[in-house]
């Protein structure tokens, strides 16, 4: 199963993510309805929407982690299975047991398990790369620390370092900004910008509407259906937000317009 690592640059015309007519249902209740979405290469895309809008489910459907009721998903023009070595997934920090007996560098080296294949243990090269990834998120000093000792922000940075170790072209992150301290938030923003500068594509489920215009290029507004998607300037309007959040956010108008002025 240990296929050689191929690092072919994608033809520019291939979208990192193409979602067509996607329906996902849990027990006959649709969680995602008729989603049609293109994620453009080399851009930072935010997925926003209220709780229960299906944001995490959309990521999982893209990654083939939940069964799709109908429709299709392509990664760089291929099924996920064939493109997975070009994809790095950062699940929600709260989805794992941080009391697991392992160290930061060990978690980061898991990022290379996909390319190592079965039966091969991570060695010196993997450790060096993992150290470099920890350095990029400011966690090099904590490499051999047990992960249960970390704060929420430090845990998130370890997760991001693991994604970096995958050396992917497409990064899919589920709420990396949730519950992190200001230092980590800045570190993540810098990391996203660095990834974009390197031509990589990043999709982030995001909760803080205020920072959408400053952090992201594109946005997809989701509430079971896809309400709007496109460049922040066009899609992130008070009208669309009202539709996505069901008019519960009259107070948002001021904030959003304010945020957008900074962008324009």
């Amino acid at each position: 199963m240990a296929a050689p690592v191929t690092d072919i640059a994608s033809p520019p015309d291939l979208m990192p993510i193409t979602v067509r007519d996607l329906i996902v249902a849990y027990r006959s209740t649709p969680v995602l309805w008729d989603i049609h979405l293109d994620v453009r290469p080399g851009r930072l895309t935010a997925i926003v929407g209220p709780n229960g809008a299906g944001k995490s489910t959309l990521l999982k459907a893209i990654l083939g982690l939940v069964p799709i009721s109908s429709g299709r998903v392509e990664i760089f023009g291929q099924p996920y299975r064939e493109a997975r070595k070009r994809v790095a997934y950062v699940p929600q920090r709260s989805s794992v047991d941080w009391d697991f007996p392992t160290t930061a560098i060990d978690v980061v080296m898991m990022g290379q398990y996909g390319t190592l294949g079965w039966f091969r243990r991570p060695g010196k090269a993997e450790r060096t790369l993992a150290m470099d990834c920890l350095r990029q998120v400011g966690m090099a000093d904590y490499a051999d620390r047990q992960i249960s000792q970390f704060s929420g922000g430090q845990q998130q940075r370890v997760f991001l370092a693991r994604a970096l170790a995958q050396q992917a072209d497409l990064y899919i992150m589920d709420e990396p900004f949730a519950g992190v301290d200001a230092v980590t938030e800045r570190a993540i923003v810098e990391l996203l910008q660095r990834l974009r500068a390197e031509g990589r594509t990043v999709v982030v489920v995001h909760h803080d509407l205020q920072t959408v215009p400053t952090y992201f290029d594109d946005v997809a507004l989701l509430n079971v259906r896809l309400i709007a998607a496109g460049p922040v300037e066009q899609a992130f309007t008070a009208d669309n937000l009202g539709q996505a959040y069901g008019g519960r956010i009259a107070f948002l108008d001021a904030e959003v317009t304010h945020g957008l002025e900074g962008k324009r």
Binding site: L63, R81, Y89, Y113, R121
Partner: peptide
């Protein structure tokens, strides 16, 4: 012993493990 790292990854973070094809 043979599947140690696969067991480790899929126990610690099953979602991530599935995403890398385990």
């Amino acid at each position: 012993a043979v599947a140690f790292k696969e067991f480790k990854a899929s126990t610690f973070d099953p979602g991530f493990a599935a995403s890398i094809g385990l």
